[in-house]
């Protein structure tokens, strides 16, 4: 077990706090989006997708578990994975707002998944060589998972965007709805800047170039207009969330709130 004191040998001063902040940002992004995807279980438009969506959800929740487990060790306060997932209130969550948005229709869910994976793939790719064994090790696994999410959701974006009049209308509507939430992916702050300097986050410009390239290739085939990212709705990294999160947490945290300490 790596405690804060031990980590401090490797990570000077505030960097342990920054790493903790990073793990909660990434962990919360993955937990909340993973929960949203899991809501499709039993409701997907076809059996094949009823398995594909939970498959992707489990990839995301696996990453959240790694983040929370590592965060708990850095924090050293006796908290565990479940405490982070099930016993924090909405204002303590640090995910970006896009991932908490309700699923909408299948087109909306697939576009959101595509955008998220197109962003996370270069981020993990950049972390495979990070000077932190835990992060680098997980990045090697996650980069493959994100490559599949891009492929799976991207093929759907193409087929719905360039499909029937109805599917194209729905994909355009999804883009209109999600557009304002994309800018939050590329926001930076002092924490992020220090992590980049320490090699614990890849260069944001490089991540953006990879994201733009993935999106442009798929959007062209999907007959979607070029993506223009503006500074839109944000606040998730500071714990300012929308009403949707309250409903999500009420369902996701119910068991631990009603039966504290319950285990499988």
């Amino acid at each position: 077990m790596t405690g804060r004191d031990e980590l401090a040998d490797d990570l000077a001063g505030d960097l342990a706090d920054d790493l903790l902040a990073l793990l909660l940002r990434i962990g919360d992004d993955h937990l909340i989006l993973g929960h949203r995807l899991s809501e499709w279980c039993g409701h997907a438009p076809m059996l094949e997708e009823d398995l594909a969506l939970p498959n992707m959800a489990l990839d995301l929740i696996g990453t959240a578990r790694m983040c929370y487990g590592y965060a708990a060790e850095i924090e050293g306060g006796g908290r565990g994975e479940d405490d982070y997932a099930f016993l924090r209130d909405g204002t303590d969550f640090r995910h970006m707002l896009m991932v908490e948005r309700p699923n909408g229709d299948f087109a909306h869910t697939m576009l959101r998944q595509f955008l998220f994976a197109a962003w996370m793939h270069p981020l993990w790719d950049g972390l495979t060589g990070a000077p932190d064994a835990r992060l680098a090790d997980h990045a090697g696994k996650a980069v493959k998972e994100m490559a599949y999410h891009i492929r799976h959701s991207g093929e759907w974006v193409i087929r719905l965007g360039d499909g029937t009049a109805e599917s194209a209308r729905r994909m355009r509507a999804a883009l209109d709805d999600l557009g304002p939430y994309i800018g939050e992916m590329f926001e930076s702050d002092d924490t992020a800047a220090r992590l980049v300097a320490a090699g614990l986050l890849p260069d944001p410009a490089a991540v953006r170039v990879a994201f733009d390239s993935t999106v442009a290739r798929t959007f062209t085939m999907a007959q979607l207009p070029p993506l223009e990212i503006s500074t839109g709705i944000s606040g998730g990294r500071a714990g300012r969330h929308g009403e949707a999160l309250g409903h999500l947490l009420a369902e996701m945290q119910f068991m631990q709130r009603a039966y504290p300490g319950l285990t499988w």
Binding site: L47, E48, L51, A52, N55, Y148, R151, H152, E155, R159
Partner: peptide
């Protein structure tokens, strides 16, 4: 293409 993905997932 979608058939291979569906097969992978199922």
């Amino acid at each position: 293409v979608m058939a291979v993905q569906a097969a992978r997932d199922v």
